[in-house]
Design a protein around this nucleic acid. Structure first.
Lengths: 240, 240
DNA sequence: AAGTGGTCTAGACCACTAT
DNA sequence: TAGTGGTCTAGACCACTTC
């Protein structure tokens, strides 16, 4: 763990304290001055750590007063900020299963070429998965990966976490994503794959995911039964 | 504008360049070293400015390479990050109208006391508004404000922007919000106020909005006709 | 007046990318 | 090897809150 990055170590030490309730919500953190002494680092390092805590909704700094610990139980952040399945379902206690319906290399048609910003006919991984939650088929995930960045995908990888494979095995660095949430009439495909009951609509989450070097490498559509969908967002007011 | 904050001035100068296309997408910004010389400031100041640009999706920094300008047209950020109505509808060219259906001070029942974390029976502003987009009643906004922070609200204020009033007239500093997007069966009230056509469901955006001193001052529900709803999010991968 | 976080300076060394 | 952004230090002054 210890990557010799002092501010990250301090950051995670503070997070641990907050999540284990050793540092209580609505109390003050030690001042930046005190933290400097405690960790024997410069103020900029402390500020780097606190900046991360603030950005991720753990604390709120107030000028002249101090850094206040927010109630994470009340604010319950979207855990990762990027992954679709895990992020969109905070149903931690649910029984979850992934069924791979399709796993192919296809050649980009106009639609895909456009979505992935690649030439027509270029190779693309196509992955269609159904997510079962508590034995009900609730989510249909259709994902497309630029083959240039992903040489191989297997059924096993797709049944577990593709992202874990991409990041930990292939060493791809995912940096940001654009997401779009809309509601659409359910298609024939939705009705086939999902247990939609009487619902006529699905929630569609489209994502465009980029690597660290700004290359677009994935386009995905996550289609949810509306009653089971929930998206939680923590947003800070922009400066200026 | 010049608030003597160098990094904010540099930040907005760079934003202007990007938005007016003087600084082109997919090109590199000058290096931090060059920007230091250009603006005659220290590197930390430049880094403060670039950090803001990166956080807001204008650039992507790549170690060893430089700061690359992202295509804002492709990524189209949620404009403000907090306000409900404007943020959730990027229909900029649409004709928009707000109709105030109800504007009262009420006493918190159990539900509201819970939502706003105030004692039972405490005074709360209740505002119910219908939003017309292109002459169709599309959104029903139900907002509740802790009276402690908002002494007076008028029909005129509610027809324009309540937030503008709170921030610019009352000087309230809004700092962050928790939002939750779900889809629910339309209620009788939804059907009454909105032109739902055949849709049986509405998209519900619940927000809890906090001031700079961490006090919760607003709870709101924004109820949307599903076909007109769209939420766009720009998310960065968390460190660690 | 003392303490807090916000801004800023002027250095330094590092890991990474380019060539 | 030279240039880039990432981390870190040791100062300084400011505006704000608390007393």
């Amino acid at each position: 763990m210890d990557k010799n990055k002092k501010y990250l170590n301090i950051y995670s030490e503070l997070i641990n304290g907050i999540e284990n309730n050793k540092i209580k919500a609505n109390t003050k953190l030690p001042s930046e001055n005190e933290l400097m002494k405690k960790y024997n680092v410069s103020r900029a390092t402390i500020r780097n750590a606190l900046e991360l805590l603030e950005r991720n909704g753990y604390i709120q700094k107030i000028k002249g007063k101090g850094s206040f610990v927010l109630d994470i139980n009340k604010l319950k952040l979207p855990v990762s900020g990027l992954t679709s399945f895990k992020e969109l379902n905070s149903c931690m206690n649910a029984k979850v299963k992934t069924i791979v319906k399709e796993l192919d290399v296809v050649q980009a048609d106009d639609y895909l070429a456009n979505r992935l910003e690649i030439p027509y006919n270029q190779d693309v991984w196509k992955v269609i998965r159904v997510r079962e939650i508590n034995d009900k088929r609730i989510i249909l995930d259709k994902d497309y990966f630029n083959r240039k960045y992903v040489d191989l995908l297997t059924k096993e990888i797709c049944e577990n976490s593709i992202y874990e494979y991409l990041e930990n095995q292939l060493g791809l660095k995912i940096s940001f994503a654009k997401k779009e949430i809309t509601v659409k009439k359910a298609t024939q495909e939705d009705k086939e794959y999902l247990e939609l009951e009487d619902y006529e609509m699905v929630v569609v989450v489209r994502s465009y995911v980029y690597l660290e070097d700004i290359s677009l490498f994935q386009y995905g559509e996550s289609r949810h039964r509306p009653d089971k969908f929930k998206f939680v967002d923590f947003a800070r007011r922009n400066k200026m």
